[in-house]
């Protein structure tokens, strides 16, 4: 049994919250750079150049890439041979978020009650997902989520008869409706199967995969490629001003489902697709 102190979790979450909001991962950088080469609209190219410049300024002047530094989504994969000592794990994670958003000059974007809407002033609570896995390590992924794109995401409960055609239609319609609101070029996470909540979680997880990665399942890989091509044919373009680059990545995760169902979740993310992982 390995012992991990809760303060180690707090410190890691704090550092990750800050780092991820100032610097995009290398795969996102590369995807955006390649997008600039593919874009056919002159205005689209100009927008993509501005986004590149924006990331440079963010790093140099220590200004977050986007003012929406997100609601903090945290995936905790906890090895079953780990024992956590100190504070309750949920408090440890939230303390990391609290410190990260304060010390990192990040925006406090969370309200305590969805109807009365008073800001909690420290960006807590985060949305924390726990998974018990084999081993003696804790893998933490911090993925702050902006709501311009989150608001455009959907869960669609298809019928088994809708099949793969229905899935494609659901994804395309969601992206079309998202349009400029989602700050294209987007990254799209799709979850297929499971239950109502499971497919949504899969879609969120799909966003934390490398942006240009493909599924190991042959038909899913084909679907990822086909959908990305069709989305880029929609003409939405960078910032929604028209163009050939509407999305720079689309990742699909699947899982078993019920004989009566075909749940599909489409989680849309803007070009500031932030995720960072650390293992304790």
């Amino acid at each position: 049994m390995k012992i991990i102190e809760s303060v180690q979790i707090t410190e890691a979450v704090k550092e990750m919250c800050i780092e991820v909001n100032y610097k995009l991962s290398e795969d996102m950088h590369e995807a955006l750079r390649q997008a600039g080469e593919r874009e056919e609209s002159a205005l689209g190219v100009q927008i993509l150049e501005q986004l590149e410049q924006n990331m440079k300024i963010a790093a140099e002047s220590k200004i977050p890439i986007c003012q929406d530094t997100g609601m903090t989504v945290v995936f905790m994969q906890i090895g079953q041979d780990v024992r956590i000592e100190g504070d309750y794990i949920e408090d440890a994670v939230n303390e990391g978020i609290r410190r990260g958003y304060k010390e990192g000059y990040l925006r406090k974007s969370v309200v305590g009650d969805p109807i009365f809407r008073k800001n909690t002033e420290d960006n807590t609570p985060g949305v924390i997902h726990y998974e018990i896995v084999p081993g003696d390590k804790i893998k933490i992924t911090v993925a702050p989520k902006g709501f311009g794109s989150e608001n455009m995401s959907r869960v669609i409960m298809l019928k088994p008869a809708d099949g793969i055609t229905g899935v494609k239609q659901a994804v395309l319609e969601t992206v079309k409706a998202a349009g400029a609101n989602a700050c294209p070029p987007m990254v799209i996470g799709v979850g297929i199967g499971g239950t109502f909540e499971k497919c949504a979680l899969l879609a969120k997880k799909a966003l934390t995969r490398k942006v240009a990665s493909y599924s190991d399942i042959p038909y899913v890989r084909e679907l990822e490629k086909e959908l990305l091509d069709e989305i880029n044919g929609l003409g939405i373009g960078p910032a929604g001003f028209g163009g050939t680059v509407t999305a720079v990545g689309l990742n699909i995760e699947t899982c078993p489902t019920h004989i009566a169902g075909l749940p599909v979740a489409v989680n849309i993310c803007c070009h500031v697709n932030r995720h960072i992982t650390r293992v304790l």
């Binding site: 501005q50 410049q53 924006n54 963010a58 977050p64 890439i65 349009g179 400029a180």
Partner: peptide
């Protein structure tokens, strides 16, 4: 701002001679 406006807003803009600008979403540092 960014993104589409409703018909009500567009017609209010016509009536009052107003304009809606878009800035680039996600370019907050710039």
């Amino acid at each position: 701002g960014k993104g589409k406006r409703s018909e009500e807003v567009l017609s209010g803009m016509k009536q009052n001679t107003a304009v809606y600008f878009a800035a680039v979403g996600g370019a907050g540092a710039l």
